[in-house]
């Protein structure tokens, strides 16, 4: 089996981004595994009820784990999209635009996810 990974795949700007992609991927295996198990595989019917979700997210430890999960998955996803775009051999200007666009998208995803989790926590308190 030949190694089909282009030598410059996702590495524009240095190997740092490739390493971050690999580290976030490794972390994801752990936190996504936890997320899937806790949310779907040990819950009857595969989904928590409304009350259970609110109670679950109100636990500070779970809240922290879910936010870490969101952070790691967003970093991994944005770096993955960047690697694909780099494979399409964009010009310097387009790559810069991609970096800015993906950074904004990543921050928006994170901000919305954190806001949603905090709002659900406050709903649980009512």
């Amino acid at each position: 089996m030949e190694n089909q990974i282009p030598e410059d795949s996702g590495t524009a700007g240095g190997g740092f981004w490739w390493l971050l992609q690999a580290i976030s991927g490794a972390l994801l295996i752990l936190v996504l595994g936890l997320h899937m198990f806790a949310h779907h595989f040990v819950v009857e019917g595969g989904l928590r009820t409304y009350t259970d979700v609110l109670a679950y997210i109100s636990n500070p430890l779970i809240f922290a784990i879910e936010i870490i999960f969101l952070l790691v998955v967003t970093i991994h996803a944005m770096l993955g999209l960047r690697a694909i775009i780099i494979d399409l051999e964009p010009g310097k200007g387009l790559l810069q635009l991609t970096n800015i666009g993906l950074s904004i998208l990543g921050v928006l995803i994170l901000a919305y996810g954190i806001w949603l989790a905090l709002t659900l926590q406050s709903l649980a308190g009512n």
Binding site: Y50, V73, T74, A77, I84, I109, Y112, L116, L123
Partner: peptide, 23 residues
């Protein structure tokens, strides 16, 4: 699969927003 999972990440956030509509 990576592209599919990015789309799913966004969809997942949309689905979780249903919780804001109540029980």
């Amino acid at each position: 699969t990576g592209l599919g999972l990015v789309v799913y990440l966004l969809l997942h956030l949309v689905v979780l927003s249903i919780l804001l509509q109540g029980e």
